[in-house]
């Protein structure tokens, strides 16, 4: 193991500074740059960490999330695999059992199908079926969600499918800061973590200043983005930004408590319960289809724990219960600020 600071600076193109107040080393990056930087730092720290996937090597991944990693760590740490998601996932399970810390990448969430069996029936179950003798510490990276005008099967939001699977953890950060801290935490985790990256916000026009040195954000902790006391809005992934946009369209007297789940599973019950006990109203927003989506689980938790606090039925603003349409209609399919604002207004009037 070596210290990141001894190595040449990774991606010197990023702006860096020392924050005057705190003395913290900061780097300015977008979400995807934060992920690449974290991958480099983790690979520096731990020789067992390897990246594998389609086009992740020389090409740096189709979203450039692994850009520069093969140049730095060589082709025995960063592998271009054959075009086979089952192969990627299944060998990653084996790599983990063999003492490595694999980070398989599935190019788009729509291509997790062939990998499903290996992830769900193997990665998630090994600990249980071996009574803890075999564990699968690995982080599966997958770009997720719609809104980028991509072809079919490049825009889905399958997080609920995997949250339903015991033995898997599912995270979905939507800011550079959270991505960096959660990715580092995921690599520390002894169990398989599905790390969903909302591709729509990979490269927002403004970059964020975040700490350069390693830090972790505990898996399973939601974040209160804005505090408020009229209504709780819960979301994750790219939809968080639609919610923030919706807040601008609301009358001033509606004060929204905005919560970004960040982790889909395990669910941070405490944060959402405390918030809804305070506000008595809640709107849950996600890109995935409404029925049997994560909103259903969260709403159930809220009615279990906040029943007497509720002033209105918990509402869900979600994707429609259809196949994700081709991109001409995707922005109408996805929950947008208008639909979110409408739901909030109605919940407030209830």
């Amino acid at each position: 193991m070596s210290n990141a600071t001894e190595q040449a600076v990774f991606n010197p193109k990023l702006r860096r500074r020392v924050d005057e107040g705190s003395g913290v080393n900061q780097v300015e990056c977008n979400l995807v740059e934060a992920i690449t930087l974290t991958l480099a730092q983790e690979m520096d720290r731990d020789e067992r960490v390897v990246c594998l996937g389609e086009d992740v090597g020389l090409n740096g991944g189709v979203f450039r999330a692994t850009d520069g990693l093969q140049a730095r760590f060589g082709d025995q740490r960063v592998f271009d695999t054959p075009l086979s998601e089952s192969g990627i996932m299944g060998t990653a399970v084996g790599l983990a059992m063999g003492g490595m810390r694999p980070i398989p990448e599935i190019q788009f969430e729509g291509f997790m199908g062939p990998a499903y069996d290996q992830l769900v029936n193997h990665a998630a179950r090994y600990r249980t079926r071996s009574r803890g003798a075999i564990t699968i510490p690995m982080v599966v990276r997958v770009p997720v969600g719609g809104g980028i005008h991509a072809p079919e099967l490049h825009s889905d939001s399958p997080e609920a499918i995997y949250a339903h699977q015991p033995g898997l953890k599912v995270v979905m950060p939507c800011t550079p800061y959270d991505a960096k801290g959660l990715l580092a935490a995921a690599l520390e985790d002894p169990d398989p973590v599905l790390f969903f990256e909302p591709k729509r916000v990979y490269r927002l026009p403004t970059r964020d200043w975040i700490p350069e040195d390693r830090y972790t954000i505990p898996i399973g902790q939601a974040k209160v983005v804005t505090e408020g006391d009229s209504v709780t809005v819960i979301s994750w992934g790219a939809s968080v930004y639609q919610c923030l946009e919706a807040m601008d369209q609301l009358p001033e007297d509606i004060s929204v408590e905005m919560i970004d789940m960040r982790t889909i599973s395990p669910i941070d019950k405490d944060t959402i319960i405390a918030s809804v006990q305070k506000t008595g109203r809640c709107v849950i927003v996600h890109e995935a289809p409404k029925t049997a989506g994560m909103g259903a689980e969260l709403a159930t938790i809220l009615q279990e724990h906040c029943f007497l606090y509720l002033k209105a039925p918990v509402q869900r603003v979600a994707g429609f219960d259809t196949i994700m349409p081709y991109y001409k209609l995707e922005l109408e399919y996805l929950p947008n600020a208008k639909r979110v604002a409408e739901a909030i207004t109605q919940v407030m009037a209830y």
Binding site: K290, T291, A312, Q315, R316, F320, D321, A343
Partner: peptide, 22 residues
Amino acid sequence: YTYATVPAELETQKRTMRTHSL
């Protein structure tokens, strides 16, 4: 085109163009 016959909930979503139920 999701199903041959549109199920009730989907019909509601189509009519209201939203997923929340208020």
